[in-house]
Design a binder for these strands. Sequence first.
DNA 1: TTGGAAGCTCTCAACACCTA
DNA 2: TAGGTGTTGAGAGCTTCCAA
Length: 475
Amino acid sequence: MNACLPCRKVKMKCRQGSQPASKCERCARKSLDCVFQQHRRGRKPGTKISKRTMPALPSAYAAVKKTPDYSGDTPSIAESVPAEEPGNLQPSGLLNQEAMRGKFSLRRILSTTEGDALEPPERSSPSRPEDPIEMGILNLSVAKSLFENFIVVLNPYISQLDPSLHTFFYVRQKSSFLFTAVLAMSAKTFNPIVYNALYNHAQDLYTESFRNGAKSTEIVQAILILTYWKQPQDTRAWTSLGYAIRMCMDMGWHKLTAYSTASRVAMDEARRREVRNVERTWYVLFVYDRSISLQTGRPWMIERSAFIESIEAWCGDPIADRNDDLLGAFVTLRLMSSSIFSLHAPSSRRSEKVPLENMEALLSLKKASIERWESHWVQNVERKQSPEEETCHKFLIRFYGTHFRLQLFSLPLQDVLSSEYSDSSLHLDIIWAAFTGAMDMLKLISRHSGQLYFAQDSIHVMTAYSAAFLVKSRR
DNA sequence: TTGGAAGCTCTCAACACCTA
DNA sequence: TAGGTGTTGAGAGCTTCCAA
């Protein structure tokens, strides 16, 4: 029913008087001018329905037209990354940037306007049909509990999310994919009853984001989280990581410049955390890329850069999270490992041969630098926690250091045990170092088996490696 | 097979009014 | 008084059906 203007103004119920043309009860009581006006309800002509909130369409036509945005409204890293050089005569500098992102059309390619001036930005809708709570997969209180467990227990292992930024509300609003991935991985450990439904939904969202070519920090984080605690039969870790890295490169992350405090003094804390969120994810990808490359012998994708090498300064930022120190340890370890392994690869894979005697001397130097690395980062971690506090950080730093020593000494061991070096007793130092490395790892694991329970899959792979190494070296 | 009318579903924006 | 939620009306977009 239509309400008069005075009632509308005060948002009160407008009750008609007894006579059809008389004032409403409130206007009559207060002696106000009771004026009615034709309402202007309804959508205005020309308003577009947001594509993201359209229902799923069965036809292939709809699949092409529908472009959902699982990213929320993540600010583009383009603000903090140097843009393509203007005036560059390559296609990247000459053509419309939207066209270069893959939105090909003659009109767009010929347009000289930047951004997407041809199409107004889509308005984001507050409703999220892919939200696992709205879908009824789990209720709010279970979701909150799973989320809390992820942040407190699981996240410290991977240093992926910033607990001050990634609150329950923030992640849920920002990306249903990341939200579901976090809940699924937490459910795997803390509430297996809802794990399957959450995992399947996360996989559906992964497929959708791939199908639509969606790109955002949250999608990358979700893919990483799903990969860290993947199912045993899932063999996509390598390809998923590659896809995530390409996505980041498309967002310009490979052009991140070296960390400096001066560049962010003008930012408020929220903005700084958003920027660090992107940077942290790129560091995590670097570590993961190098780790998986080392484990599988395949090439890595992310090259070392001034940004990667500024990790220690980045960890010293006033708003750095305590998990950032663990990430700092991992990044510096991977920087060290890539330079060492190119020298110490087995002779069959080296272009130049380094005599074993020289290699032994080199290895002892490297061993000392790993020990310095370990004590430096353990001290950093200890500074930020109380003595009685039991976190996974110290364990992980020692674990990775020990694993690295084992890998380092296992490489020349192949040469020692090969027929070319018939008298292996001459190189007992190398054999002994590799053997004690494997033993140290297993001792460490047995002392901290509780920490191992929550660890990501790669930790278990590394554990299995040390055990397999010992078994094989006894033959 | 194709074009277009009719009808249906869904979204969006404005409105009504409850309640703190 | 005004924040917030449910309701309403109109248009967009899609499917179905039918005639050419």
